[in-house]
Structure formats: structure tokens, C-alpha cells
Design a protein around this nucleic acid. Structure first.
Lengths: 343, 343
DNA sequence: CTGAAAGCGCTTACAG
DNA sequence: CTGAAAGCGCTTACAG
């Protein structure tokens, strides 16, 4: 069943059927209806490969997720992101081709993405600061949008959440409660979100005149185990509050705290980032930052569609709104007993 | 940059370049090397769309995940599955096109999958017993393999884990510890895994001559909240042990138990299914069934490749091995042995 | 508003 | 072992 068949059945030429399918206005209304009826009855779907070859576009976008940081794939961030992208595609008649870019296939993946002639553009979950794929994309003429801003190149389009600003806000909230000795467990610093959240932490302190102490900054690598180990290093320094750069790490951090018999938030306050589904079920429920992951995925895809529709529309930068979610883990301020600087 | 260009640079015809790319043995070794060198230098990638159109195959497979049960998308099952499929594709020079089949687009998704001419075959995460997409696939001539067995049609290929057998084994283990009054919180019964795990539970009891009591079987719908609510209904009936058909539900069930002040496993034993990453971090660590999700995804893709290579190889049925994982939540037997902390 | 024809970049009998 | 040519199913100037 192809264009030719539909043409015969509708008593028009192949060209006209093609015009109907592509919503070309230059078709008489009665003709259009006749052809559409045949298409419907035959349950006809134009062959994408042929279409792609002839028109140079496919209505398919690529979604690239660098898997170097595979720890992140066990929490719901990427699934939600994928779902968002997929939902936007469904709603706009696009399909999505998925590349989980494992490091060992990185080089080949890049080539596939750029040259396979099967996609119109690509959305890249740009977690790493120096992603090879991003560099290659910039040099190519493949339209793309990043999820996560690019640290240096202003000409690339991206959709991001305000990691830095909302981290700063969260620190501000903790300071407002009276905490002064505030530590942080950071995410991987070669990841944009990790870097921005740390920056937000430092800004929050410094805009309140609180000196930054390096011993209160411990790397946690975005994993549950990393959070656990980091908190163990942190505890001897007796922070009043700890800002953990992801909820997943916060789970590990909480485990480390509770193992020593300390209580949250009375003896040490805790805050996370992401507002993952499990955050409100922890005990105590976790203060954190909500980021709209699903919407971010959708928006990234939609931004790409815009770019595809009008390539001149230049670099588009979108920042999705976040929201501080106050729960019990951040407590009501320092107790007299805890947090005295120094052992 | 296309076949023609490569042909010119290598001083051969387009046909020969094509043969080199497709590993046709009918090429003189020296010619092959010359052409390959040019391809490498030019970083040439054949256009998939053209290839697809000419050859009738694309080296792309579809991966369809019905999202009716979107609660399941927040735990790592689907991510791991996707990752497995993707890994197998990377290793075999295939790409994957992802369809998250949201119910509202179901009809259209099916058409896209079947007729878009962009994929050679499809892997379907066949969670529902009566999936429309499966029915359509059976009627079409698109090669496919299901993840999860099909309840009625023996002619379809699938890769599944032994939900029924391993549930039975787990029940056997509980009985071996001395528990008799064993309840279950079931998964959705329109899902194959949900149904099979319940069957395994019943078999386990009946092969030990323990009568099945309907009040000890409560539906939990595979969600954390469902597990919580189900356990609340179950507690008044005072089961000695509860087999929860997923770890995610077990988290909710545990919450419900602990809210009443009862302790696990001393006053009530608990077991889950899936061995999700968080299972060993619960307190107490959860006895459960490990299933190799990543490997299942890989195997499904590989099975599809086999089917594609030899369409006559008939329906292929693979059952992946599972493993009972004994942790502390199942305890050491009913209350007489209570009070002893873990090893 | 419509059709005939060229062309997108490949593969694959066919002939040599 | 290699090349010339047809053809895969579309789109899109071009001509009318």
C-alpha cells in the first residue's frame, strides 16, 4: 500500500495525494476530502524512510542521554525526562529515537546521531560540562537543544532549571531559620547541575556574610553511597545544617546520620534537591527543591520543534521554574545544644 | 557526502562501495581495504533512510512501552529494561526507536509502529494481559518479541522471568521457616507479572496443604500507596508473614506496619519481589526475588535480532533465571524465635 | 488546482 | 570480482 495505490483509488495523481498528506493548501476541498477518506479507509501510513529521503526531513528527533553517569539512571530523573520528551513528540506527530550513549560507544553514537539521515534534530540531556557530543553537534548543522545550559557557548539553545538560584534560595531559607554553620554535600563537579548547585550554596552564604569553610564542602558524586560516605566525613565537623545536592544523596546522608544516633532535624538539619517521589516519604520528610522534570523534557522537545520550524529563531534559552519545598527535615532553627563550632 | 563520492575517491563504482559497507564477500581484499580507508577518512555514514528504502531494512528496532501503568515508571524497572535493550542494540549496530504508548495515543502509536517503514522489528514490554498492540502485531507481519510471556498465544516469541516459579519458591521458603498464616499483597491482575506472582503464591501454599484464605489476599496495584493501603486492610487479620508482589509495594506495606508500632520481622515477616536497588537499604533489609532486568532487556533485543536474521526460527521462548534473596525482613520463623537481632 | 517527471541515496539482480 | 541500471516510496519544482 503506497502513494500510488491511494492515488488510483482516489482517481488523482500521486502528487495530489502527497499534497493532501502534507496539508498543502493548494488542493481543492472536495479532492482533499475524497483522498482523506481513502487514506482513512485503507489505514494508510506513508513510508517514513521514503519521505525522509525525498523531503530531507523525518518527523523523528533523537534523544541522547549520556550514560557516563549511570548512577543517575536508577532514580526517576531520566525516566521522567524521557517521558516528557516522548509526550511532547506524541502530541506533535514526532517520533523519538533513543540513544543511551554508553562511553564505549560514544564516538560511534555521535556519528550515528549526526549522519544517519533519520532524524531532524536532537535533544541532548547535557549533564556533563564537556560533552563530546555537544561539541560535535555545535560543529555540525544538526539542530539541537540541550537539557541543561551550556557552560560556555551562548549560541546553543537549552532548557534548564534554575539550579543555582534555587540552591541559593534554599540556603537563604536555612539561614533565615537561624542556622549559620551550614555544610553541603555536592554533586559531581563535572556535571552542570552539580556545579551550579554548589555555586548557589556559596552565593547564599556569602550574600549573608557567612564565610565559606572548605571542610564543610564534601563531594558526594550524586549517588546514595556517595551521600552516605560524605556525611560520615562531615559529621566530625558538627554542621548545624547540611544542604545535599540531590535527594538520592540525601537518603545516604540520612542513613549515616541516623547510624550515629543523631536525630534530624533536632540535632542536624537536612535539605535535598530534586523533590523525588520518595522525598516526602522519608522520616523525617525531606526539605528540598522541586524541579519540573517531566515539563522540562516536554519543553525541550517543543523548543526543538520551534527551532525546526524556524531555524532563524536563533538560540532559545528557557529556564523552568523551581520551588522550595519545606518539610520537616530542615526543622525550626538551631537548638541550643547542637552546632557549637568546634570539637 | 554519499556513496557516489566515496566511489569516486576510491576509484570504484557505487555498487562496490555498497558491497564493502555491507560486508559482501564478493570484493577483492585490496579493493575492500582501499574503500574502507576512504570511508574512515571521510567519516562516512550511509544514509539510513535511503538504505531502508532500498533494502527494506533499517537496522532500527522499535521499543514499545505501554504506559497505561505509569506508576511503574517511577521505579527503576523500565529504565533498566530500556538500558538493556539499548546496550544490546549498541553492541549489534542497531538503533532504537522508543514509543511510550500513552493510552490516548495508543491507536496512532500502533499504526506508526506497524507502518512507518522505519523499523525492522519491535520489542514490546508486554505488561498488560490484553494489550491492543500485541494483538495488532500478531495480525501484522512485523517481527516482534514480547518482554513478558503472552497468556494465550503460543506462537509469539517472548523473554520472561519465572514470576510464578520464583514466587512459589519464596512461599516455600517462608513455610520452611515455620510460617503458616501467610498473606499476599498482589500486583494488578490485568498485568501478567501480577497474575503470575499470585498464582505462584497459591501454588506454594497448596503444595504444602495450607488452605488459601481469601481475606489474606489483598490487591495492591503495584504502587507504594497501594501497598500501604493493602497492608492496613491486612493487619487486622494478623498474618504471620506477607508476600508483597513488588518491592515498591513492600515499601508502602512496611510503612503501614511500622506506623502501628509492630516490628518486622519479629511480629510480622515481609518479603517483596524485584530486588530493586533500594531493597537492601530498607530497615530491615528486604527479602525478595532478584530478577535480571537489564539482562532481560538485552536478551529480548538479541532474540529479536535472531528472529530478524532467520525468520523461520519460529517462536522463541526464553525464561531468565531469578534468585531468591534472603535478607532480614523474613526473619527466622514465627514469634517463638522473636527478639533475636540479626547476624 | 493538478499531473508528469526528476531526484533523494541507497541495494541488488543482472551481465560480464 | 566489478559496474550499469532499475527501483525502493516519497516530495517538489515546473508546466499547465
Amino acid at each position: 500500500m503506497n502513494l500510488e495505490d491511494i492515488a488510483k483509488l482516489s482517481r488523482v495523481s500521486r502528487s495530489t495525494v502527497s499534497r493532501v498528506i502534507n496539508d498543502d493548501p493548494n488542493v481543492r476541498e472536495s479532492t482533499r476530502q475524497r483522498v482523506q477518506e481513502v487514506i482513512r479507509q485503507m489505514n494508510f501510513q506513508p513510508n517514513l524512510a521514503a519521505r525522509s529521503l525525498a523531503a530531507g526531513k523525518t518527523k523523528v528527533i533523537g534523544l541522547v542521554i549520556p550514560m557516563g553517569v549511570s548512577t543517575m539512571f536508577t532514580d526517576p530523573y531520566f525516566p521522567m525526562l524521557i517521558k516528557g520528551v516522548s509526550a511532547a513528540c506524541n502530541a506533535n506527530d514526532y517520533s523519538v529515537m533513543l540513544w543511551l550513549a554508553e562511553p564505549e560507544y560514544e564516538r560511534r553514537t555521535i556519528n550515528q546521531v549526526l549522519h544517519n539521515g533519520m532524524i531532524d534534530g536532537v535533544v541532548v540531556a547535557s549533564v556533563l560540562m564537556d560533552d563530546l557530543i555537544v561539541q560535535a553537534l555545535v560543529r555540525s548543522n544538526m539542530p539541537f537543544v540541550l537539557i541543561g545550559r551550556h557552560p560556555t557557548m551562548a549560541q546553543v539553545s537549552y532548557v534548564d532549571v534554575d539550579n543555582r538560584g534555587s540552591s541559593r534560595q534554599l540556603i537563604q531559607h536555612l539561614i533565615g531559620l537561624g542556622y549559620r554553620r551550614i555544610a553541603t554535600i555536592t554533586g559531581a563537579q563535572n556535571m552542570i547541575a552539580g556545579s551550579d548547585r554548589l555555586l548557589g550554596y556559596m552565593e547564599g552564604l556569602s550574600q549573608n556574610g557567612i564565610p565559606i569553610e572548605m571542610e564543610l564542602i564534601v563531594p558526594g558524586n550524586f549517588s546514595e553511597e556517595g551521600g552516605y560516605a560524605a556525611m560520615q566525613k562531615l559529621l566530625p565537623h558538627r554542621p548545624q545544617a547540611v544542604f545535599v545536592a540531590s535527594d538520592t544523596m540525601a537518603v545516604g546522608a540520612l542513613r549515616a546520620i541516623q547510624q550515629t544516633g543523631l536525630t534530624v532535624p533536632d540535632e542536624i538539619a537536612l535539605a535535598g534537591f530534586d523533590d523525588m517521589p520518595f522525598a516526602e516519604h522519608l522520616s523525617p520528610p525531606l526539605t528540598t527543591v522541586y524541579q519540573p522534570v517531566h515539563e522540562t523534557g516536554m519543553r525541550a522537545a517543543e523548543t526543538l520543534f520551534d527551532l525546526l520550524a524556524d531555524p532563524e529563531s536563533g538560540p532559545i534559552h528557557v529556564t523552568m521554574p523551581t520551588e522550595i519545598v519545606i518539610r520537616q527535615s530542615s526543622g525550626a532553627g538551631p537548638s541550643s545544644a547542637a552546632g557549637l563550632p568546634n570539637p
